[in-house]
Write a protein that binds this DNA or RNA. Structure first.
Length: 469
DNA sequence: AACTATGATTATTT
DNA sequence: AAATAATCATAGTT
């Protein structure tokens, strides 16, 4: 009350001195007599101040009405100028503006991370989301991305939420800012508000909202981290393939030992086979990239220590030998049947001759057939092998149809042969199959120095730097 | 618990 | 881009 009295005092003085009392004259004075003029004015001003003070206590309509009344009041300009003066004196108007946020390193960090994670930024250039969608649409043809499709989907989800929230905050911030600005502008009719103050206010609001946004960013980061640890690390968690799957892969590997690089199609096929193979109850469908991994690992590990794999090699070679023999036999039979120009040429193979039970006769037979012809299996690939077969038999039929299909079986047969031969007459014949001179130069089939048949016990060196974890 | 096997990742080479 | 070589980290084995 003391303040108020003082203010009123000064109002009386200033207003009368500074502003001519035009407004006051225009409006009918509350109290007509000169004698009570001063008292009346005091009361007037007291009323106005009271109304200003209590403006927020009233309902909107009432307040609007009162506000209008105040704005039209004859004392209003005077009061305004007084307020201006007060404000100037108390130095309330310009203060501050020294708080420029120091570009918050933490915010930067979060921003960078979100950007790196592909959550922020512009839709990743048709990258993940589009690719994932395409992959999902096209079905199984998505090799690598299908593994991460879950992850990508979740990431997209996070991204979406993040963006909608961000937008929401942005919008709310703008709305609130404009609202406050309007409010201040309107109030500036009643009390002095410099543009700088408005600016400062806006700055404050923005800072508040950006701190909220930072929280959003932080929690988004957290979500991404959790997602990462859940998925990408789970990806590293290894599940062994099923027995059947490794069986299939090994079969392919050992029957293509001379060139164990399955084409993309072959890989797809293998992946399919491995996935189809029973016991796939719980999520272990094998993907193409897994097949690639497998072959990569297999090749390098086989090469690194062939001796260790001899047993396995024999096993699978023998296993597929029967099939191979079958296939060769039927293929030859078919070709013979289909081509009248090639009557029997002593290359008949009957199934019975290739029962594994009668392995001995089979192997010697084949051994004689192959080793007898060229004496060496140091061939770049099975294509040559096939040629040698042809020349051996003096057969003139075009083997294209057979040749292509038979190639892998020939590999297998060669293996079996080399094994038996290696054991039976390993003396002069160490240039037959077996590892095609691998460890020396690292190549798989351009080997120029075929090593001797590796004994099934342990290869030379046998260093496995791999298993030293 | 030590050890090996193996699927996956990373860095480098080709 | 694909292969290799080295390495990682876990699944199985002993």
């Amino acid at each position: 009350m003391d303040d108020q009295a003082r203010i009123m005092q000064s109002i009386g003085g200033v207003s009368l001195a500074g502003h001519s009392v035009q407004g006051g004259m225009a409006l009918p004075p509350p109290h007509g007599h000169d004698g009570t003029d001063v008292d009346g004015r005091k009361q007037d001003i007291g009323d106005i101040l009271h109304q200003i003070m209590t403006i927020t206590d009233q309902s909107l309509d009432e307040a609007q009405a009162k506000k209008h009344g105040l704005n039209c009041h004859r004392m209003k300009p005077a009061l305004f100028s007084v307020l201006c003066e007060i404000k100037e004196k108390t130095g309330l108007s310009i203060r501050g503006s020294q708080e420029e946020d120091p570009q918050d390193p933490q915010l930067m960090r979060l921003d960078n991370m979100l950007l790196a994670e592909g959550v922020a930024g512009p839709e990743k250039g048709g990258g993940s989301a589009a690719a994932a969608a395409a992959a999902a649409a096209s079905g199984g043809a998505a090799d690598n991305s299908i593994e991460h499709s879950d992850y990508r989907a979740k990431l997209t989800q996070i991204r979406q939420i993040y963006h909608t929230e961000l937008e929401k905050y942005e919008q709310a911030c703008n709305e609130f800012t404009t609202h406050v600005m309007n409010l201040l502008r309107e109030q500036s009719r009643t009390r002095p508000i410099s543009p700088k103050e408005i600016e400062r206010m806006v700055g404050i609001i923005h800072r508040k909202f950006s701190s909220i946004q930072m929280q959003l960013k932080q929690s988004t980061c957290e979500a991404v981290m959790i997602l990462r640890s859940r998925f990408l690390d789970a990806r590293r968690k290894r599940r062994n393939f099923s027995k059947q799957a490794t069986e299939i892969l090994n079969e392919y590997f050992y029957s293509h030992l001379s060139n164990p690089y399955p084409s993309e199609e072959a890989k797809e096929e293998l992946a399919k086979k491995c996935s189809i193979t029973v016991s796939q109850g719980v999520g272990s469908t094998i993907t193409v990239s897994q097949v690639s991994n497998w072959f990569g690992n297999k090749r390098i590990r086989y090469k690194k220590n062939i001796g260790k794999f001899q047993e396995e090699a024999n096993l699978y070679a023998a296993k597929t030998a029967v099939n191979a023999a079958h296939a060769v036999a039927t293929a030859v039979q078919n070709s013979q049947a289909n081509s009248p120009t090639t009557p029997n040429s002593g290359f008949q193979m009957k199934d019975e001759e290739f029962q594994l039970d009668s392995a001995e006769s089979k192997n010697t037979l084949l051994t004689n057939m192959f080793t007898g012809s060229s004496g060496s299996f140091n061939l770049p690939n099975s294509g040559d092998m096939f040629l040698s077969m042809q020349s051996l038999n003096g057969d003139s039929y075009q083997g294209a149809q057979v040749g292509a299909n038979v190639q892998s079986q020939v590999d297998t047969l060669r293996h079996v042969i080399s094994q038996t031969a290696g054991y039976n007459d390993a003396l002069g014949r160490n240039t037959m199959y077996s590892p095609h001179g691998l460890p020396a130069n690292g190549g798989w089939q351009d080997a120029t120095t075929p090593s001797s048949v590796i004994s099934p016990t342990e290869g030379p060196g046998s260093v496995h730097s791999d298993t030293s974890n």
